Amino acid sequence: MVEDRLSAAAQDYLKVVWNAGEWSDRPLTVKALAERLSLTAGTVSEGVRRLADAGLLDHQPYGAITLTEAGRREALAVVRRHRLVETLLVRTFGYSWDQVHEEAEVLEHAISDELVRRIDAHLQHPTHDPHGDPIPTADGEITIPQAHRLSDLATGDCGVVTRVSDSDSELLQRLEAVGMLPGCHVRVTERVDSSELMTVTRVDHDGADGGAAVPFGLAALRAVWLVPG
C-alpha cells in the first residue's frame, strides 16, 4: 500500500542514488547527490545519515554513497513505478516523450502497488520506457545493456540508440524531429573535437544513410546511449 511506503523524499534519495549508478561507475558523493537533488550538502548529509541508520544506504564519511540490498529493492520499486507511468502516459494518453518526466515524478509516489500491477498488465508488460530505459520487473530484476555514450564515439562508428536521458526536453524534441529515437540505427559521420561538434545520420537496414546528417554539440550527445553495431 502507498501508506506503508517510505516518504517521498526518502524514495527520491534512493532513486537518485540508483540512477547515478545505472549508467556510470563514478562514485557518488554527498556533494554530487546534493546537486542532483537540488538541495544543500548539509541537508543531503543528514538525509543520507538517516537512510544509512535505516539500513538503506551505505556511506562512510567523505566516501561514496551506495545502496544496501534493502535500499536497492526500494529504489527499483520507485524506478519501476516511474517508468511504467511514463510509458502509460505516452501509449495511452498521447503525451510526447519530452512531457512525461515531471508527471511521473509526482505520480510515482502516489499510485498503489495494485494500480502499478494493473498498469503493467494493461501495457502488456513493457520492458522499456519511452526513453529506452529498462523497466524493472515486479521482482526487482533489471537488465542494463552494454551501451556507450554517443559523445564517446569516433567518426565512422555505428550503433543502435538504446537510451536517451529524459532530463533535457529540448534535446528530446530535437531528436524526435530528426527521427533519432530508441531502436534507431545511427552513424557518426564527423567528429570535430576542437569545436566539440558531432554530425550524426540515421542508417537504414541496408546500411545506407537514411536521412540528412545532423550536427549536435558533444555535450548534448552525452545524454544519448548506443549499443555498438
Rank of each mutant, 00 (worst) to 15 (best):
E74H: 14
V79M: 06
R81N: 03
V161A: 09
K31D: 05
R222Q: 14
A223Q: 13
R36G: 03
V192D: 13
S169M: 11
T92W: 08
V100P: 04
F216E: 06
A147T: 04
V224I: 11
L123T: 01
D113L: 12
S45T: 02
T201S: 15
A223K: 15
A138V: 09
P228S: 07
T68G: 03
S112Y: 10
L14W: 01
V2R: 13
G211S: 08
A34C: 06
D209T: 11
G94V: 02
E74N: 07
V178E: 06
V17H: 01
R80P: 00
T43N: 11
E35H: 09
D53N: 12
T127V: 15
M180K: 01
A219F: 14
V214K: 06
R174K: 15
D193T: 07
A41H: 07
D168N: 15
G211A: 11
I111N: 05
V106W: 14
A75L: 08
G21V: 01
A52R: 11
L56H: 01
E196T: 05
A212P: 09
R49T: 03
V161L: 15
D98N: 13
A121M: 11
A75H: 05
P126Q: 10
H205F: 13
Q11M: 08
T155V: 11
T29R: 09
R191A: 14
H109N: 14
V200L: 09
K15M: 12
A104F: 10
G183N: 09
D193R: 10
A77V: 03
R50F: 12
D209C: 14
A212H: 14
L56I: 02
L226A: 07
D139W: 05
C184W: 01
D193E: 12
E74V: 12
A20S: 14
V188T: 02
V178H: 08
I142N: 01
W225F: 13
T137V: 06
D120Y: 11
A8G: 08
C184E: 07
S165N: 10
S7D: 05
